[in-house]
Protein backbone atom coordinates (compact mmCIF):
# COMPACT_ATOMS: atom_id res chain seq x y z
CA UNK A 1 0.00 0.00 0.00
CA UNK A 2 1.12 3.48 -0.76
CA UNK A 3 1.68 6.03 1.96
CA UNK A 4 -1.46 7.83 0.88
CA UNK A 5 -3.62 4.74 1.09
CA UNK A 6 -2.07 3.96 4.45
CA UNK A 7 -3.09 7.38 5.75
CA UNK A 8 -6.59 7.03 4.36
CA UNK A 9 -6.94 3.61 5.95
CA UNK A 10 -5.79 5.04 9.27
CA UNK A 11 -8.37 7.80 9.05
CA UNK A 12 -11.10 5.31 8.29
CA UNK A 13 -10.08 3.13 11.21
CA UNK A 14 -10.08 6.13 13.52
CA UNK A 15 -13.56 7.16 12.45
CA UNK A 16 -14.89 3.63 12.81
CA UNK A 17 -13.46 3.11 16.25
CA UNK A 18 -14.47 6.49 17.55
CA UNK A 19 -18.04 6.22 16.28
CA UNK A 20 -18.19 2.76 17.81
CA UNK A 21 -16.78 3.94 21.09
CA UNK A 22 -19.20 6.84 21.32
CA UNK A 23 -22.04 4.42 20.78
CA UNK A 24 -20.64 2.15 23.46
CA UNK A 25 -20.41 5.09 25.85
CA UNK A 26 -24.03 5.85 25.12
CA UNK A 27 -25.04 2.32 26.04
CA UNK A 28 -23.08 2.66 29.24
CA UNK A 29 -24.85 5.93 29.90
CA UNK A 30 -28.15 4.09 29.64
CA UNK A 31 -26.95 1.44 32.02
CA UNK A 32 -26.22 4.17 34.53
CA UNK A 33 -29.50 5.87 33.72
CA UNK A 34 -31.29 2.68 34.72
CA UNK A 35 -29.40 2.53 37.99
CA UNK A 36 -30.05 6.21 38.65
CA UNK A 37 -33.75 5.73 38.01
CA UNK A 38 -33.80 2.80 40.40
CA UNK A 39 -31.94 4.83 42.98
CA UNK A 40 -34.40 7.69 42.63
CA UNK A 41 -37.31 5.34 43.20
CA UNK A 42 -35.76 3.52 46.13
CA UNK A 43 -34.05 6.48 47.79
CA UNK A 44 -36.59 6.80 50.56
CA UNK A 45 -37.11 3.08 51.03
CA UNK A 46 -34.85 2.93 54.02
CA UNK A 47 -36.99 0.34 55.81
CA UNK A 48 -35.99 1.51 59.25
CA UNK A 49 -32.29 1.60 58.34
CA UNK A 50 -30.19 4.73 57.92
CA UNK A 51 -31.00 7.34 55.29
CA UNK A 52 -28.39 8.98 53.12
CA UNK A 53 -27.75 11.93 55.39
CA UNK A 54 -27.02 9.60 58.29
CA UNK A 55 -24.14 7.84 56.59
CA UNK A 56 -22.60 10.11 53.97
CA UNK A 57 -19.26 11.63 54.89
CA UNK A 58 -19.31 14.69 52.72
CA UNK A 59 -15.68 15.82 53.21
CA UNK A 60 -14.47 12.47 51.94
CA UNK A 61 -16.87 12.56 49.02
CA UNK A 62 -15.70 16.03 48.13
CA UNK A 63 -12.12 14.80 48.25
CA UNK A 64 -13.04 11.90 45.96
CA UNK A 65 -14.59 14.33 43.52
CA UNK A 66 -11.55 16.58 43.42
CA UNK A 67 -9.22 13.63 43.05
CA UNK A 68 -11.16 12.20 40.13
CA UNK A 69 -11.37 15.55 38.38
CA UNK A 70 -7.64 16.08 38.81
CA UNK A 71 -6.94 12.64 37.41
CA UNK A 72 -8.95 13.60 34.35
CA UNK A 73 -6.81 16.68 34.02
CA UNK A 74 -3.65 14.56 34.17
CA UNK A 75 -5.14 12.27 31.57
CA UNK A 76 -5.77 15.28 29.34
CA UNK A 77 -2.14 16.32 29.70
CA UNK A 78 -1.05 12.83 28.71
CA UNK A 79 -3.18 13.09 25.58
CA UNK A 80 -1.62 16.41 24.65
CA UNK A 81 1.83 14.93 25.16
CA UNK A 82 0.78 12.09 22.89
CA UNK A 83 0.11 14.43 19.99
CA UNK A 84 3.66 15.72 20.46
CA UNK A 85 4.97 12.16 20.57
CA UNK A 86 6.58 12.84 23.92
CA UNK A 87 6.67 9.38 25.44
CA UNK A 88 8.12 10.45 28.77
CA UNK A 89 5.40 13.00 29.38
CA UNK A 90 2.71 10.61 28.25
CA UNK A 91 3.90 8.06 30.77
CA UNK A 92 4.13 10.62 33.56
CA UNK A 93 0.64 11.86 32.80
CA UNK A 94 -0.73 8.34 32.77
CA UNK A 95 1.13 7.55 35.98
CA UNK A 96 -0.45 10.50 37.76
CA UNK A 97 -3.86 9.52 36.37
CA UNK A 98 -3.37 6.03 37.72
CA UNK A 99 -2.30 7.10 41.19
CA UNK A 100 -5.21 9.50 41.53
CA UNK A 101 -7.67 6.97 40.17
CA UNK A 102 -6.40 4.34 42.56
CA UNK A 103 -6.69 6.77 45.47
CA UNK A 104 -10.27 7.49 44.50
CA UNK A 105 -11.02 3.82 44.45
CA UNK A 106 -9.29 3.29 47.75
CA UNK A 107 -11.41 5.94 49.44
CA UNK A 108 -14.55 4.46 47.96
CA UNK A 109 -13.72 0.94 49.06
CA UNK A 110 -12.92 2.08 52.58
CA UNK A 111 -16.20 3.98 52.70
CA UNK A 112 -17.97 0.79 51.67
CA UNK A 113 -16.16 -1.44 54.14
CA UNK A 114 -16.81 1.01 56.94
CA UNK A 115 -20.52 1.05 56.15
CA UNK A 116 -20.69 -2.71 55.97
CA UNK A 117 -18.79 -3.17 59.22
CA UNK A 118 -21.23 -0.80 60.90
CA UNK A 119 -24.05 -3.05 59.75
CA UNK A 120 -25.22 -0.82 56.91
CA UNK A 121 -24.50 -3.22 54.08
CA UNK A 122 -26.47 -3.48 50.84
CA UNK A 123 -28.73 -6.08 52.42
CA UNK A 124 -30.05 -3.61 54.97
CA UNK A 125 -32.63 -1.83 52.87
CA UNK A 126 -33.66 -1.14 49.30
CA UNK A 127 -32.08 2.29 49.60
CA UNK A 128 -28.71 0.82 50.54
CA UNK A 129 -28.98 -1.83 47.81
CA UNK A 130 -29.46 0.93 45.26
CA UNK A 131 -26.74 3.08 46.78
CA UNK A 132 -24.09 0.38 46.82
CA UNK A 133 -24.98 -0.78 43.33
CA UNK A 134 -24.97 2.63 41.69
CA UNK A 135 -21.81 3.90 43.35
CA UNK A 136 -20.20 0.48 43.10
CA UNK A 137 -20.87 0.20 39.38
CA UNK A 138 -19.12 3.49 38.86
CA UNK A 139 -16.26 2.21 41.01
CA UNK A 140 -16.11 -0.95 38.91
CA UNK A 141 -15.77 1.18 35.81
CA UNK A 142 -12.92 3.09 37.42
CA UNK A 143 -11.27 -0.22 38.24
CA UNK A 144 -11.58 -1.42 34.65
CA UNK A 145 -10.23 1.94 33.54
CA UNK A 146 -7.19 1.48 35.75
CA UNK A 147 -6.55 -1.95 34.28
CA UNK A 148 -6.85 -0.60 30.75
CA UNK A 149 -4.60 2.32 31.66
CA UNK A 150 -1.88 0.02 32.99
CA UNK A 151 -1.93 -2.12 29.88
CA UNK A 152 -1.75 0.97 27.67
CA UNK A 153 1.09 2.50 29.65
CA UNK A 154 2.99 -0.75 29.53
CA UNK A 155 2.66 -1.12 25.78
CA UNK A 156 3.57 2.50 25.17
CA UNK A 157 6.64 1.99 27.28
CA UNK A 158 7.59 -1.12 25.28
CA UNK A 159 6.57 -0.18 21.77
CA UNK A 160 6.46 3.60 21.68
CA UNK A 161 3.52 5.52 20.33
CA UNK A 162 2.15 3.61 17.38
CA UNK A 163 -0.93 4.66 15.46
CA UNK A 164 -2.92 1.92 17.12
CA UNK A 165 -1.88 3.08 20.57
CA UNK A 166 -2.76 6.64 19.66
CA UNK A 167 -6.22 5.47 18.81
CA UNK A 168 -6.59 3.47 21.99
CA UNK A 169 -5.26 6.25 24.16
CA UNK A 170 -7.76 8.65 22.62
CA UNK A 171 -10.55 6.22 23.44
CA UNK A 172 -9.25 5.78 26.94
CA UNK A 173 -9.34 9.54 27.36
CA UNK A 174 -12.98 9.57 26.33
CA UNK A 175 -13.73 6.78 28.79
CA UNK A 176 -12.01 8.52 31.66
CA UNK A 177 -13.80 11.80 31.08
CA UNK A 178 -17.04 9.91 30.78
CA UNK A 179 -16.48 8.42 34.23
CA UNK A 180 -15.95 11.93 35.53
CA UNK A 181 -19.24 12.99 34.09
CA UNK A 182 -21.05 10.07 35.66
CA UNK A 183 -19.40 10.84 38.96
CA UNK A 184 -20.66 14.42 38.83
CA UNK A 185 -24.14 12.98 38.58
CA UNK A 186 -23.46 10.53 41.41
CA UNK A 187 -22.14 13.38 43.51
CA UNK A 188 -25.17 15.52 42.83
CA UNK A 189 -27.99 13.00 42.81
CA UNK A 190 -26.76 10.56 45.44
CA UNK A 191 -24.74 12.63 47.86
CA UNK A 192 -25.74 16.31 47.57
CA UNK A 193 -29.44 15.71 47.19
CA UNK A 194 -29.17 13.10 49.92
CA UNK A 195 -27.80 15.46 52.54
CA UNK A 196 -29.82 18.47 51.50
CA UNK A 197 -33.17 16.82 51.95
Amino acid sequence: MSVQEEALEEKRLLSKTSVGFWLYLMTDCLLFATLFATFAVLRDATAGGPAGRDIYEMPLVLAETLILLTSSFACGLALIAMTQKNIRQVLIGLGVTFVLGATFLFIEVSEFTKLISEGHGPQTSAFLSAFFTLVGTHGLHVFIGLLWLSVLAYTIWRRGITSKLTRQLTLFGLFWHFLDLIWIFVFTVVYMMGVVR
Binding site: C29, L31, T34, T38, L42, A126, S129
Partner: peptide, 29 residues
Protein backbone atom coordinates in the same frame (compact mmCIF):
# COMPACT_ATOMS: atom_id res chain seq x y z
CA UNK B 1 -30.42 -3.69 25.98
CA UNK B 2 -28.47 -1.72 28.59
CA UNK B 3 -31.71 -1.55 30.55
CA UNK B 4 -31.99 -5.33 30.38
CA UNK B 5 -28.38 -5.74 31.43
CA UNK B 6 -28.87 -3.50 34.46
CA UNK B 7 -32.19 -5.06 35.41
CA UNK B 8 -30.89 -8.60 35.21
CA UNK B 9 -27.87 -7.43 37.18
CA UNK B 10 -30.06 -6.18 39.98
CA UNK B 11 -32.11 -9.37 40.00
CA UNK B 12 -28.83 -11.29 40.21
CA UNK B 13 -27.78 -9.23 43.21
CA UNK B 14 -31.14 -9.87 44.84
CA UNK B 15 -30.63 -13.58 44.33
CA UNK B 16 -26.97 -13.92 45.25
CA UNK B 17 -26.03 -11.32 47.84
CA UNK B 18 -29.60 -10.78 48.98
CA UNK B 19 -30.06 -7.13 48.22
CA UNK B 20 -33.57 -5.71 48.20
CA UNK B 21 -34.29 -4.16 44.84
CA UNK B 22 -37.29 -6.23 43.96
CA UNK B 23 -38.13 -8.15 47.11
CA UNK B 24 -41.41 -7.57 48.87
CA UNK B 25 -39.75 -6.66 52.15
CA UNK B 26 -37.26 -4.05 53.41
CA UNK B 27 -38.33 -1.45 50.89
CA UNK B 28 -37.92 -3.52 47.73
CA UNK B 29 -40.19 -2.70 44.84
Amino acid sequence: FPILTATLGMLTLDRTIETHFFTSDLGGN
